[in-house]
């Protein structure tokens, strides 16, 4: 059995700075992170940071805003201007941040419960207004941080600590809600689809307006174990087996359950003026030269 190749070339006095490309984006003094073995959140971070490089995003002008939950911890690990805000309110914080300093690129990175239960109202209105935000939702079908409670995305029949006999509620289909609310870019991938996800992140960085990316990731400790679905790798294998790529699919038809297809791809890509563009354009007409845009 071979060993891994050593980092060193004995012929070179100074070694090349070979390090995991993700490391330069992380607050290394805070490693290791708190996520469980087999949790998919770290995988999404790899894809996100790879896309930052691929898209040439200026890191000094990038800000990450997250809410509360396991995915909410992403903000704390990224070496960017990062804001770990209150439960459900990352989007309005991000709205204020972006409107106060429009040259910022603002990304909201949070979980399904944070963004769609307590945060649902804010999601709807930011999408409606086409606030210029990229919203990344890691959907693990549960409230992981607090021990595995029912989430608005939990599939019917799944067991959770607050649905101890099985979930009898109907889950929310996130891309459907995002499209209905007005999002201009809507995509869904799983952590199996690392290359597609990276490319979608890059495409999202190249666009403006309210962009929504849902990423299915396993919560092995709580969702998978409680429902006897194995480890994280088993969860990702299931994504591989059940997913089918359908770009442009009708978001009304792509709900998720414990069985059945997992439809992934880019579903919506329809630019329209952002909130601030609309405001500037409108007030420009109303006031002409007297209008003072932000910073103007």
């Amino acid at each position: 059995m071979s060993q891994t190749t050593p980092l060193e070339d004995p012929n070179l006095p100074i070694q090349p700075p070979l390090d995991n490309p993700v490391m330069s984006f992380l607050r290394q003094e805070r490693m290791p992170h708190i996520w469980c073995p087999g949790c998919g959140i770290g995988t999404t971070v790899n894809c996100f940071t790879r896309a930052l490089t691929d898209a040439g995003v200026g890191l000094d002008r990038l800000a990450i805003v997250s809410g509360i939950g396991c995915t909410g911890r992403v903000a704390g690990y990224l070496n960017l201007d990062s804001f770990h805000t209150t439960h459900g309110r990352a989007i309005p914080f991000a709205t204020g941040l972006k409107l106060a300093r429009p040259e910022l690129q603002v990304v909201v990175y949070s979980g399904d419960g944070d963004l769609f239960a307590i945060g649902g109202n804010h999601f709807l209105h930011a999408a409606r207004r086409n606030q210029d935000l990229m919203v990344v939702c890691v959907n693990n079908f549960t409230y992981g941080m607090t021990g595995g409670q029912l989430a608005p995305t939990t599939p019917e029949g799944a067991s959770q600590t607050t649905a101890p006999f099985g979930n009898f509620e109907s889950p929310m289909s996130l891309p459907y809600v995002a499209e209905a609310a007005g999002a201009v870019f809507v995509a869904r991938w799983t952590v199996y689809h690392v290359r597609h996800l990276t490319r979608t992140f890059k495409e999202a960085f190249q666009r403006k307006g309210f962009r929504f990316i849902e990423i299915l990731a396993p919560c092995p400790t709580l969702f998978l174990r409680r429902n006897r679905l194995g480890d994280g790798v088993d969860g990702v294998r299931v994504y591989k087996e059940r997913s089918v790529i359908r770009d442009g699919a009708d978001t009304r038809t792509i709900g998720l359950g414990m069985d059945g297809e997992i439809v992934v791809g880019t579903f919506v890509d329809r630019p329209r003026p952002t909130w601030m563009e609309a405001m500037d354009s409108y007030y420009g007409k109303v006031f002409g030269d007297r209008y003072r845009p932000v910073g103007g």
Binding site: L18, N20, P21, V22, M23, L26, M31, P32, H33, W35, P37, G38, C39, G40, I41, G42, T43, V45, N46, C47, R50, V191, V194, R195, T198, G232
Partner: peptide, 15 residues
């Protein structure tokens, strides 16, 4: 480098 993209703990990468 797929291993590196997958690894949630940033423990492996390929080149």
């Amino acid at each position: 480098g797929l291993c590196g993209l997958y690894c949630p703990d940033f423990a492996i990468f390929g080149m």
